[in-house]
Design a protein around this nucleic acid. Structure first.
Lengths: 343, 343
DNA sequence: CTGAAAGCGCTAACAC
DNA sequence: GTGTTAGCGCTTTCAG
């Protein structure tokens, strides 16, 4: 389809300014080597004409773009949409556009999407979301990102270890430990953990924090049941049912993300189990709604919006010789879903 | 910076397949005029070589892109992130990339973003989120979209009236009416409405549905207080405080979105007002968490994910001579936050 | 400091 | 059915 919309092009600006297209290009991109007077005039004329550079022509000629690629597991999930919010905010202020894709936690889809972003010559790629404990699963993705990175592309990841690039790393271990210490401090000993797939590093890290706290309290982690289900609200419901059925004397459920905790709370309500008087429940992430639940969810706060913003800031900075890692503190937020052991 | 990353290009595929670059192009884009055998072989070789077309070159040559531009108010808001989820899902299955930007409910920012998308030659633009009751506010945006549309670009909007393009329109009036009828049916007469800015069409429409139901029940809408606050959780909290202070005998709060309802619920809990025994509360949208609240939120369901998917489908279809409008039914979902009038 | 000209990788006429 | 070729609009050497 022929595009009849006659956008003003660089030639038009150049002609109007009475300079060559090369000079016009240099003036607008700020490339040194143009007399200030000429450059100013060109810029002014460009504004008057409402000139906006054709991104694709620019990209084709220069080999890179101002576009940022953001890869998330599922944009409908608050954890990721809050991260995206932070990324979009910074991107807008830097005049960059953001291309988002979600992968449904499928490593193959993720690889696919990363490839497509590389092919689209995005200027930077941000990968958010848990990695896999088994490094081989994400080897192809890592490989792809390395190639991209070596070719001058910028990469930052949120919460993944094995990717060997600049990273924003939430303190999942410390968070898991803190929330467990809180529960232990309330006197609970019959604890159950609600976990997503332990193939995910996020789950593994949080869980290891939980175990550290248990050991420090002189408990045997192997006696604390870890119920593995989908890392979602539905998974939380299912997990709650299994805890109730298989470990009926449990007094505290430590869920490894808020989604599971919310599902768990919902199921406990259905089952008529009062929280926190009969059962304490904790989450992880502190999604926006956590504080507005009833009871308010005791959880570990991760500043998702900020994490997104930082990741983009990292990606936009000049690359260092070594991957940078920015640790993000996870802070315990005590609300009403936890209380002393019943009885 | 010279890009050393030697992506396989179309020439490479063509050479490997022993055909011309034109034939290779036709094979891969599905343009008719290539023998099936050749086309198949080319495609297979392309896959083997990990070929991914350079979006920018394609776009520059063809004058349009596979990229979809999605404009939302705030991606961190579940309403929009669920819509985005639907858009991304369809986009992925169509092999299209999505560029998302958010505008913070600021018409100027929105205009800015739309302009930038037009300049980037996106293939289609989807604008989600409430429009403004005052048409002049969005006149510039409308203008921009029309130019884009006339130039062959595709546009679809979600929930906005005044834009004169293909639209997915949630039945806000009917939903407002349905939820109000439900509340009236429970015997409530001292009702308060929690509304976002009435400059927003979404708010105005839902409110007019509320009023219709009131009138039909023989009530005078002017006697039902409409508390206007931010269309957010915080606004819901503030609204709840004002209802409690200014209209203490209220028995039912009709919030015009779930966010406000959730904030309201939270505030009522703080204030020690039991729901629904002392106060009924309703929402609108049915965001994912609505059913997992305690009490479960009675609300009006809008299939956000589906709305996003439909909007993209509309945008991808051949344009009709007249703008198409797809009405999305709003269905009442009764949960536990509403009950009979106390006393 | 400025201009001419060679591509960037692909699509789409246009020939054969 | 398939190949040749002329651009798409811009950046970037390379001359002047």
């Amino acid at each position: 389809m022929k595009r009849s919309l006659a956008q003003t092009r660089l030639v038009d600006v150049a002609a109007a300014a009475g300079v060559s297209i090369a000079t016009a290009s240099r003036s607008l991109s700020g490339t040194p080597g143009v007399s200030p007077a000429v450059a100013d005039r060109v810029r002014q004329i460009a504004v008057e004409l409402g000139y906006v550079a054709n991104l694709h022509a620019r990209s084709l000629a220069s080999g890179s773009t101002a576009t940022i690629g953001l890869v998330v597991h599922e944009i409908g999930d608050p954890y990721f949409s809050e991260i995206a919010s932070g990324v979009l905010r910074v991107a807008a202020s830097e005049g960059r556009t953001v291309q988002i894709c979600h992968t449904g936690r499928d490593p193959d889809a993720e690889l696919q999407q990363i490839r497509s972003m590389v092919a689209n010559r995005v200027g930077a790629i941000i990968v958010a979301g848990s990695g896999f404990v088994d490094p081989t699963v994400e080897l192809p993705a890592r490989h792809e990102l390395e190639r991209f990175s070596e070719a001058g592309g910028r990469v930052a990841v949120i919460g993944r270890h094995h990717l060997g690039v600049d990273a924003v790393l939430p303190e999942n271990v410390e968070g898991g430990r803190a929330v467990t210490e809180h529960v232990l401090g309330l006197g609970h000993r019959r604890i159950a953990v609600l976990a997503g797939s332990t193939a995910l590093t996020t789950v593994a890290d949080r869980l290891s924090g939980v175990h550290e706290a248990l050991v420090e309290a002189g408990l045997d982690p192997s006696e604390v049941p870890v119920v593995e289900a989908a890392f979602t609200r539905e998974g939380g419901r299912e997990g709650a049912r299994r805890v109730l059925a298989e470990h009926p004397d449990t007094t505290a459920v430590v869920a490894l993300n808020d989604d599971m905790a919310i599902g768990c709370l919902s199921e406990l309500r259905v089952a008529g189990v009062p929280v926190p008087t009969r059962m304490s429940v904790t989450g992880f992430d502190d999604v926006a709604v956590a504080g507005d639940l009833s009871p308010g969810l005791t959880t570990v706060r991760l500043p998702m919006v900020d994490m997104g913003a930082r990741a983009l800031a990292l990606a936009l900075k000049e690359p260092g010789k070594r991957p940078r890692r920015q640790r993000i503190p996870a802070t315990l937020v005590v609300r009403d879903s936890t209380g002393p052991v019943p009885g």
